[in-house]
Design a protein around this nucleic acid. Sequence first.
DNA 1: ACCTGAACACCGTTCAAGT
DNA 2: ACCTGAACACCGTTCAAGT
Lengths: 241, 241
Amino acid sequence: MRLQHDRKRVCAPFTKRKRVDAQAIVEQAHALIHEGGSAAFSMRPLASALGTSTSALYRRFPSKEWLLIAVVDYVLEDVVATPPNAQAVTARRRLEHLSSSLREVLSSHPHLHEILTSRVTVTPNTIRIAEAALSCLRGVGVGDSDLVDAYNAWSGYVIGFTAIETKPPGFTPEPDLQEAMRRQLEDGGGLGAPTVAELMSPGANIAFGLRWAPGRLGAANTSFDWGLKALLDGFEAGQRG
Amino acid sequence: MRLQHDRKRVCAPFTKRKRVDAQAIVEQAHALIHEGGSAAFSMRPLASALGTSTSALYRRFPSKEWLLIAVVDYVLEDVVATPPNAQAVTARRRLEHLSSSLREVLSSHPHLHEILTSRVTVTPNTIRIAEAALSCLRGVGVGDSDLVDAYNAWSGYVIGFTAIETKPPGFTPEPDLQEAMRRQLEDGGGLGAPTVAELMSPGANIAFGLRWAPGRLGAANTSFDWGLKALLDGFEAGQRG
DNA sequence: ACCTGAACACCGTTCAAGT
DNA sequence: ACCTGAACACCGTTCAAGT
């Protein structure tokens, strides 16, 4: 599933003939982004990986922007939403599953946040996920007047947490820069930041804004579930009060 | 306040002499990013805006990466953290102020997320903000064993929400693409997404993943505070249970 | 109808040559 | 010690020319 762009300008991506090509471009683009990161991704290597000319790509996608959004949708296809009619599964449980599925997918494609968070992306899978989340939130007891707020708060938490959590491994800072940040944390912790100094054992690399190495959060990495529980508890408590 | 890089390779940014220059570079870079977005920002225009050669910039900053992180720290300077010894102000209230100050600053510099969320950034102001947040969370009643989790959840929510919320206005998608997304939402809403169709009046542009126009969320825009309340309520309830 | 090579107007970074 | 211009190896996108 991908967005349709103006048929007058370029070939229709949904027609039977040649549809494979557009799909192949998306898959190859995804593969290249997965390997080398979205910053390093460019049209020329993509074309040569596919064995075509760079300009031929512009017959399937009006611009790199359209292609990137197609890649986002392609990856989000993997997010699993439990259907609401599944018996014996509470709305809360379904929402927890959706959250962790979304987190898993975004985590295993660490370059997607760079694309996802910095632009507006409405795609079939975006809508599908939103539909599932909204229905769960209703099931949890959130009233209609609060539903949009709850949905925004939920997306903000899940997507935001994962976006900050998962630094692309290819985006490792240069050793010099990494060392400078580590030193900064040691020095800063000693001077004006007693709580930071107390909690962040050197090398812990455990908390946002205080860690200098990329990849997922270290240690137990319980923060996501812990925070989601607090957020959903807050949702439910708010409806009762 | 900025990170120090290796003095052997380049001139020290903290020495009295020439320090103005490094500061001037950061400020000019910030101005250019503010106007044109971080994607469009490049070294050549920066140099010519400052009246120097491009290569002269590399004497103050080892790479564009160091410069971008310096810009992040420069902007985060504006985040206000109420000191913990301020009487008659509860920890909860201080945390709410810190959250909205952080949100305000990030919102008014909409291009910062692209820099902030996609790489590891430890800077003096990052540490200052973390220190304030940790101390507030402790004051709210979060136990030491949960403090890192609570801090991560809080950062994930605040930074994440704001990152998704604030699309850089310069990042407006091409009209064709924007129209395709709007249509997608209409069609998709009608077919497999009844809740989306029910809630998202056309043109509402109100919810993450379902809106096609950049800028802040429309309408009442109460979602941030609503979600923060739920999260902090959840924090407090969790400590009592 | 589709593809192509060449071109346009850009990038970040380096480095020998200047002062 | 600092700055510079030119160069290197790249970008996204367009378009006349081919089949």
